[in-house]
Amino acid sequence: MAAAAAAGAGPEMVRGQVFDVGPRYTNLSYIGEGAYGMVCSAYDNVNKVRVAIKKISPFEHQTYCQRTLREIKILLRFRHENIIGINDIIRAPTIEQMKDVYIVQDLMETDLYKLLKTQHLSNDHICYFLYQILRGLKYIHSANVLHRDLKPSNLLLNTTCDLKICDFGLARVADPDHDHTGFLTEYVATRWYRAPEIMLNSKGYTKSIDIWSVGCILAEMLSNRPIFPGKHYLDQLNHILGILGSPSQEDLNCIINLKARNYLLSLPHKNKVPWNRLFPNADSKALDLLDKMLTFNPHKRIEVEQALAHPYLEQYYDPSDEPIAEAPFKFDMELDDLPKEKLKELIFEETARFQPGYRS
């Protein structure tokens, strides 16, 4: 834990890192770190609560700039109880001085990944967590956004079992017609939660990839272990087919990539493993919904509104309290091709509203 900075004593240090967030945020305490930044909790002297502050230093890398800009653009436009918001952003007053960006968010005690390492969940908890994931996802999908990296560590939890989806750095506007060349190379989302079509096709992607990830998360809540822990690309596919069985001819016809289709045709026939054999203690309604989410063919996979209306979630289902976005989200430009200098300018502009004396 960093010592509390005395008023006016300059930035606090946390594990050798400068955290320049005073005077409003003090009493910093280390939480963890990701690929390009550290997260601390801090005391907000204005709202009198502890908050989470993520320090991001992305400006050396085009990919990190892209992810940072995506996350900020999306989260500043989203407003939903099951999606983490941005409360404040701290950065230098000029673009030349801006080396880091500090993002202030609600402090959540833990995440689903940490929880599943230590606790076996009751059916009631599984049901409530799944409902909140789908409630947040309904809003995301209504904005025409794909999260693309749903996994237990991106689901934040607090002691009252509130759940918030975080990390929109890989999110995209849904565009089933656009052929994202190089899709697989830039697709760094965790393999275990990846839909089979991501490994088999490169053309376009749809909201059904997020539903697949939610199915993987439900299976993990039922058993405290990942359902498809593939060691590499082909191993991942083999794990999936080992449980779902061989795809039907109709399902194979959806695979545009001939090499991928021929690979699947070359494999020995596998039978589907019954879900109640894998999860003998699970609620039968939970397994019915799991089956509809972990469907090989993305066109037959359940959609988020149908999933919310499934009998497993009937005690929570309330369409009048499951809000959607006001308007579909649009990125003005494809960020993939922009140089990091341009992305830095866009991050600077996007964060201006939090600067003292800002006038829109």
Results as ranks from 00 to 15, higher is better:
G169M: 03
R91L: 14
H125Y: 08
N123Q: 10
T206C: 07
E96D: 13
W212N: 04
P247V: 06
T94I: 12
K231C: 05
E326F: 02
T160Y: 02
S202P: 12
Q132H: 15
P356Y: 05
S266V: 06
K344A: 05
A3S: 14
C254N: 06
S142M: 09
Y30N: 14
L134P: 07
L121G: 02
S153F: 03
G242E: 06
M98K: 15
P247C: 01
G230D: 14
M293P: 05
H180W: 06
L170H: 05
D332Y: 15
N87P: 02
P11R: 12
G230Q: 00
C216G: 10
Q306R: 08
A219H: 05
A189R: 10
I140F: 14
Y193W: 08
L241N: 03
T351Q: 04
I227W: 06
T185R: 05
S266H: 04
C65Q: 10
I133M: 08
F348C: 11
I140E: 05
R194F: 06
L294A: 07
Y187H: 09
P196V: 11
G10N: 10
C166Q: 09
P226S: 12
L107W: 03
N297R: 07
G37T: 15
N87V: 08
I56Y: 12
G357P: 04
G169N: 09
P176E: 09
G34H: 00
E220W: 04
T68L: 15
L241D: 09
V21W: 02
K73H: 06
V273N: 01
G169C: 14
S223A: 14
L252R: 10
Q132S: 07
I255P: 08
T94L: 03
P274G: 07
L308Y: 02
L244A: 04
V145A: 00
R261N: 01
N297K: 11
A3H: 03
F19P: 08
I86H: 04
G34A: 07
I302W: 08
E326D: 15
P176K: 08
N297L: 04
L290D: 07
P196F: 08
L156P: 00
D321A: 14
H125T: 02
Y30R: 06
L346H: 05
I53G: 09
P311W: 00
T159C: 12
N276F: 07
E33I: 02
R353W: 08
Y25S: 02
P176S: 10
A7W: 02
Q355A: 05
K330C: 03
K54V: 10
G357H: 04
S142G: 02
C166T: 10
D111I: 00
A92L: 02
T94H: 10
L130Y: 02
D283E: 15
N276E: 11
S57N: 10
N87K: 15
N27Q: 00
Q315L: 14
K292R: 09
I256H: 09
H178M: 09
K330A: 02
L130E: 01
P298N: 05
I243Q: 05
E71G: 15
S41V: 08
L346W: 01
H125V: 00
N158I: 15
I198L: 12
P356A: 02
P229L: 06
Q236A: 06
V18S: 12
L150N: 04
K340G: 13
E197C: 05
P328M: 03
L234R: 02
A174E: 12
L258M: 15
I89M: 08
L107P: 00
N271I: 15
P356E: 11
A260Y: 00
F59C: 13
A286G: 05
G230M: 02
Y64W: 12
I103R: 06
A286I: 03
I243R: 00
S266N: 12
E109D: 15
I302M: 00
R15K: 15
A7Q: 13
I95W: 10
Q249R: 03
A92T: 13
I209Y: 06
L278I: 05
R225W: 04
K270N: 15
N154C: 03
Y233A: 01
F331G: 00
L130I: 03
D111Y: 13
K207C: 13
G32W: 00
Y233I: 09
K259E: 00
I256K: 07
I255C: 11
Q249E: 02
D251C: 08
A3V: 13
Q306D: 04
R301S: 14
I133F: 14
P226A: 07
E33K: 13
C40K: 12
E109R: 03
C40F: 14
G34M: 03
